[in-house]
Amino acid sequence: MARFVLLLVMVSVATFLLLELIPGDPVDGLLPEGATEEMRQQLIQLYGFDQSLVTRYVSWLGDLLHGDLGTSWQTRIPVATTIAERAPVSLELAVLAMALALAVAIPVGIYSAYRPGGIVDRIATFIASATLATPAFVLAIVLVWVFGVQLGWLPIVGWVPFSEDPFQHLRAVILPVISLAGGECVLFIRLLKGDMMATLQQDHVLSARARGLPTWRILVRHALRQSSFSLVTVSGVVIGRLIGGAVIVEMIFSIPGLGSLVVIAINNRDFITVQAIVLLSALIYLVLNSLVDLAYPLLDPRVRRATT
């Protein structure tokens, strides 16, 4: 726990230092054309840009401990409000991407393990390597071009909230979700196939085979159950990564999530927003990682054996 808090403090201090190094005063990023020197000085006073780094950090930390993430210098909207609006968007994308990746990976992974070197395995392996080799930003713009522009099947106009039009919403999330799911799906297939093939070598499975049980039943009943543990734990890490990491996909599809917000905030020198988002992402990562570390030995007998 102490380590946990220490890490968060380190992340926040490092973020502060990093942002401090970015050239261009926040004041210059904020003030509009035509602002007088007097307004400039007032703004510096107001946000304490003239105070030392330590003073600013301590006051930011103090507010944070009182549950106050501060107010955006740019929009004057509380940072917490903006994050509360955007986090669900990033979360939804992450969860859907995850679900899609698993939905494809499980049957493909099982079948590849069932008939390794077979046609499905080879096609899957090929598609998997191809997908893994396509950077998300390349995949995203190619998808937009094919399905949005050439075929006209999916909308190219930005984000429609679910509450407003569920159907349009789903149409709008398809391409971003596929772009995000691509790489993760491949990871899952590899993991699952590896796990399953290892399981097939285990004694009780070999004896089940000797008893004449069909391989696919063994795969589903024994192997999948064991492998699902590692899938679940890896999913935890992957989700954490997707929530904080979908910067480019959010930019390409104009999705109002946390990733696009951070880029905008850095450009506008709205550092108070950047600090909050980086801290939140780190928190999510650390929490999920701790859960995984805790859960892993409990769930997977192989690891229990290996670590004890």
Binding site: G34, Q42, L43
Partner: peptide
């Protein structure tokens, strides 16, 4: 609009 925190473009006129 004279409040600098509002970041208004009107500074030119207001002054």
């Amino acid at each position: 609009l004279k409040d600098p925190a509002l970041l208004s473009f009107a500074g030119y006129w207001l002054s």
